[in-house]
Design a protein around this nucleic acid. Sequence first.
DNA 1: TGTTGTCTGGGCTATTTGGTCCTATAATCG
DNA 2: CGATTATAGGACCAAATAGCCCAGACAACA
Lengths: 217, 217
Amino acid sequence: MGDEHKAPPAKPRRISQRGIATRERIVEAANRLMFVRGVNATTLDDVREASQTSKSQLYHHFDDKQELVRAVVKYRGALVLEREHGRLERLKSFSGLVRWRNALVQANSLQNGAYGCGLGSMAVELSDQDEQARSMLLETFAAWEKLISDGLHRMRQGGTLAEDADPDKLATGLMAALQGGYLLANAAHDVAPMEVALDMALEHIRSFLVEPGAATR
Amino acid sequence: MGDEHKAPPAKPRRISQRGIATRERIVEAANRLMFVRGVNATTLDDVREASQTSKSQLYHHFDDKQELVRAVVKYRGALVLEREHGRLERLKSFSGLVRWRNALVQANSLQNGAYGCGLGSMAVELSDQDEQARSMLLETFAAWEKLISDGLHRMRQGGTLAEDADPDKLATGLMAALQGGYLLANAAHDVAPMEVALDMALEHIRSFLVEPGAATR
DNA sequence: TGTTGTCTGGGCTATTTGGTCCTATAATCG
DNA sequence: CGATTATAGGACCAAATAGCCCAGACAACA
C-alpha cells in the first residue's frame, strides 16, 4: 500500500527522554479531552492546561492542531487494537464472542452509554474534514474487523461455524451493529440499544453455527 | 433565573410572512452546511452568507448559536421522519423492507457514503454537549424506530412474521445496523459496509418470517 | 393614514483560538 | 568542561468568531 503521508526528508533530530515523555503527555491529555468533548470542541489551550505543558511545546512536537489530532487518532487506534487483540486473539467459540460482547457492554454501561466509541466518534467528526485522519480510521476499523473475522475463520475451520458462513461479512455486520449500538446508546445515555444491537448480530452469527444447540446462553 | 428552556410566559410577538421566510432560509442554509461540514465546524458567518441574510437577522430569530443548532436538529428530524413516514407507513411485507433498504442504500451511494446519516452525525457531535439537542434526537430516533416497528407489527398481525418475533427489538437492531452502516460507509467513503450491515439485519428479520421461502430476493 | 412594533443591513466589540517568537534552561556530545 | 542542540516558559499576535447595537425600512393594525 502507498505510504502517502509521513515527513519525507528524514530530519535527524536529536530527541531526549524528556521530550518523548512530554509528547506522550500531550497526546494522552488530548486523547482524554477529545474523547469527552469531541475533537473540534477541544482547544489547544485545554490540551496545554490538561497536559501541564506550554504552547511552545505543543508546537515543538506538532506542526499544528491537525497533526495533534492525527496523533490522537493513531494513539487511540493503537489502544483499541491492542485491547481488542487481547480479547479476540484466542476467540474460537460462540461463547467467546458472547464474552467479548459482555466486556464491551459492561465498559459502556459504566458511563451510561455516554461518549460512544472513541473510534466511531472521531470517524464521524473527521471523515469529511480530514482525509488523512479518515484513512487512518478506515485502516483501524479494517484491522479491528480482521481480528473478528480471523476468530470467525478459526471457528469455521474448527467446525463450529458452517462452511457457507462468510466471516468477513459477518465481521462487518457485527462491527456495524457495534458502532450503531454505541451511537444509539450515546443518544439515549443508556446501554440498552447497544445490547440489543449486539445481540441481533450475535444471533445472526449463531444461525451459522453447525450445532446451534451447543451455544452457551 | 433558572428557566432552563423555552419561554412559556407567552410573548405575544407579532410575526410577518417575511420574517417566517427569512427564518426558514436561515435554518435551511444552516442545515445544509452542518450536514456537510458538521455542526461545530459551521460558523455563523457561513450561515449568514449561505442564507443571504445579515447578522442581526440571525440574532433576531435565534437567541444564540445553540438555539440555531437546535432548530436545525428539529428541522432535520422532521424532514427525516416525513420521508420515512412516507416510505414506511404502508410497510407490511418483507419485500417492502427490502425496498426500503434499497432506497437508503441508493441515496447514500450517490455521495459515496460521505456525510453519513444527518441524524446520526448530529447525535454523535451533540449528545455529550447539548442535553436538549440530545433529547430531541433521542425522540426522533424513537419515532423513526416506531415507524419500523409498527410495520413489523403489521407484518406479524398479517401472519407474515412469527408470533415470537419482537418488533421493538428488531426495529432497534435494524436502526443500529443502519446507523453503524452509515458510520462505516462514511469512514470508507463507500456504501458497501452499509449494505452488508442492512443485509445482516434484514436476514435476521427474515429468520422470523413464517414462510421463509416466500421472501422476495 | 398614522402609530407601533417587526424586520433588516451592516458596522462594531470582546473573546477565543490557533499559531509565532524570543529567551532561558536542561541534555547531550566532543 | 564547553559547545551545541533540544526542551520549556510564556508573552505576544492575527485571524476568526460569537454576539451587540442602532438606524432605517417594512408590515400590521387602529
